[in-house]
Amino acid sequence: MAMRISTMDQHDQPRARFPAPGALAIEAKWQQIWAQDPTPPRSSTDNDDFVMVFPPPNVTGRLHCGHALTTAIQDAIARYHHMHGKSVRWIPGTDHAGIATQTVVEKQLAKTEGKTRHELGRDAFLSRVWSWKDAHGDHIHHQLRALGASFSWSDAYFTLDTPRSRIVTDAFLELSRRGLIYRATRLVHWCPALETAISDMEVEYLTIDGPTAVPTPSGHSAQVGEMHYFRYPVADGANGGEFVTVATTRVETMLGDAAVAVHPTDARYAHLVGRDLVHPLSGRRIPVVADDHVDPEFGTGAVKITPAHDANDYEIAKRHAIAETTWIDLFDGKGRLTPACGVPDLVGIDRFAARSRVVELLTTAGVYDRVEPHAMRLAVCSRKCWLSSMRAN
């Protein structure tokens, strides 16, 4: 006999209710009991202690299901050790999140009041950030308590509170005392929108297949995905007119070039290694160096070296002991050209606006060759979704 599964109209289906009737009242009752922190006194021997730090969530919003999952797993571990007679301290906390929190508060300020942090003022903006932290940090604690997690709430911390800040300061002072840290100029990723250095983890990359107009915060657009070719005249050439052609996707950075590198086995340039080229816009002399990093098959086989704005160029400059006085940091914190660029008419211009201006100047000087489509990866600040740049800092 065949079996038949009967079906009901969806309107006849019993409806599940969430939360179940009375659940919230029951949870509230037990939360009050758990809030008394019934953790037994700590054992007198370290072998009987179990201490675990809860990875602090950022105070940039609210917890989601992923936090609930990992909290449940850690709670099971804490309860396991408690059941085995150990004194358990599971320490909860929240993280200031630095730039991420600043960005969230800035967006809220722009949306609700139409102001920037600069218009609000430093002290008032910091006050807003702390208010955000208090509101969202408290809500995160409320969510964790609602999960019934067996935290040691009396040990709760914030990564920017006084004890933690003092520990960080003491650690740096001790490292300095031991000679394990030092201050030096290094290349960093810089976000002109935030006007601060950002970590490698805060840089994302967009794939650009060819010429593309990318919008900028100023409302204009920047042309990317292009390879520009221009020529460096050879200084004191026996036959006038000898030059080296280089290619770059960021032609405006040629204002900070400190050398041109070629591969040691590239016969095309062997006679030029050790000689100088003349910068076509500033008149400075820059050397030709031979370095294994150069790919002779890419572009023209000659690479412009801008130590203050490219990580590979930075390393090449160090290897060849190119004087740091020639490492020109072209841009200010907002990404505008400074007097160090050597061209007065370009001072104060945004780096992308300067791109077309530099092409015009090179064309006028008779050394601009051509532009070609070029696939590339474009660095983007993950916090502001804007282009980051390398700069010495």
Rank of each mutant, 00 (worst) to 15 (best):
I5G: 07
Q10Y: 10
H11G: 04
H11C: 02
P14C: 11
A16M: 11
A23S: 07
P40I: 04
T45C: 02
N47D: 15
D49M: 10
P57D: 04
L63N: 03
L69R: 14
T71Q: 00
D75S: 01
A76Q: 08
H82N: 04
M83N: 11
K86L: 09
V88F: 14
R89D: 03
W90C: 02
P92A: 13
A100W: 07
A110G: 03
T116H: 10
G121Q: 03
R122P: 05
F125A: 04
S127C: 11
A135Y: 06
A146I: 05
L147P: 03
Y157G: 03
Y157E: 01
F158Y: 14
L160W: 13
D161H: 07
I167D: 10
S176W: 01
A197Y: 00
M201E: 13
L206E: 15
P215N: 06
S221L: 00
P233K: 04
E242G: 05
V244N: 08
V251G: 12
E252W: 01
T253I: 12
A259C: 00
V262H: 00
V262M: 06
D266S: 00
R268W: 08
L277G: 10
P280Q: 03
L281N: 06
A290H: 13
D291P: 11
D292V: 11
H293G: 08
V294T: 07
P296D: 06
I316M: 14
K318H: 00
A323F: 09
T326H: 12
I328Y: 09
D329Y: 05
G333Q: 09
G333C: 08
K334V: 09
R336I: 12
T338I: 12
A340G: 05
V343A: 08
R357E: 14
L362V: 07
T363Q: 14
V367M: 02
S382E: 11
S389I: 15
A392S: 14
